[in-house]
Amino acid sequence: MTPRELIDVADVPGGPPLRLFRRGGDFMIVLERNELMSTRMHGSEVALGTMACDRLAGRPAAHLLIGGYGMGFTLRAVLGRLGADARVTVVELVPGIIAWARGPMAAVTDGCLDDPRVTVEMGDVAATIGRATATFDAILLDVDNGPDGLTRPANNGLYGNQGLADARKALRPGGVLAVWSASSDPAFARQLQRAGFAVETVRVRARENGKGAMHVIWFATKR
C-alpha cells in the first residue's frame, strides 16, 4: 500500500490542529484520529450542495451561505446548479484550509474560489449567521461530523436552541438550513422541528457511485 504522507498542519482556533495527508493522488484532512474528509469519498458533500439547490425551486438571484469550505466539493456542486445571478458566501474558520485549496490541492479546487459569484470570509460561521436577518436562501453547514462540536467545542452553539434560532432569522421566507452528518440523530431532527422548521432527513452514500458508508443530511425549511 502507498504510504500516507503528511503535507501540512493547520491550527484551528479553539480546537486541535488539522493535518493534511496525501496518499498517491488522494488527499485526506484528519482531526486527531478522525478522517474528516477525503477526495476518495465525497458523494454526500456533493449531495449537500445539489439537493439544497434543488429545494430552492429556481429562486432568482439566490444567496447561499456555506459554513466550512472543506475540500470544496459542496461549493463546486452548488456553483454547477446555480445561475449567473446567484451569490455564494463561504465562511471558513481555518486559514490553512484555504491555503491548502490554493496550494497543494489546487487541482481539486479547480478554480472554484475565483468564481465571480463566490465571496470567501475568514471567521466563525456562527457569527456570520448571528449578524444576518432574512439574508440567505440557504445555509449549508458541514463544519463538524454532525450536530456537535467535534472540530472545536464552540461549534456546539450552532446546533443548540440559540444557534437554530439565529439560523432561522438569517434565512429568507421558505429558506433552507441544510446540516451534514456522518450518522443519524433523531433528537436533532426533533430539535429542528421545535425551532420552527419543516424537517426532511435524507440518507446518502459517502461515494458518488452509490457505495460507502451512509451519511445523513437534514434539510430544514423555514416555516
Rank of each mutant, 00 (worst) to 15 (best):
R4N: 06
E5W: 07
L6E: 10
V9M: 02
V12E: 09
G15L: 08
L20M: 09
R22L: 05
F27C: 10
M28I: 13
V30Q: 12
R40P: 13
M41Q: 15
S44N: 11
L48E: 11
M51K: 14
D54I: 03
G58E: 11
R59P: 08
R59A: 15
L64S: 06
G68W: 06
G72P: 05
R76A: 13
A77N: 11
A84Y: 09
D85E: 13
A86N: 05
R87E: 07
T89Y: 06
T89W: 01
E92T: 07
L93I: 07
A106V: 09
A107F: 04
V108A: 03
G123I: 04
D124V: 01
A126W: 06
A132Q: 05
A132W: 06
T135M: 03
D137C: 02
D142N: 12
V143F: 14
P153K: 07
G157C: 11
Y159C: 13
G163W: 15
A167K: 09
L177E: 10
L177N: 05
L177S: 05
V179A: 08
V179K: 09
W180C: 07
S184P: 10
D185H: 11
F188Q: 04
A189K: 03
R190L: 12
Q191V: 01
R194E: 13
A195F: 04
T201Q: 10
R205I: 01
E208F: 05
K211L: 07
I217A: 02
F219L: 10
T221I: 11
R223N: 15
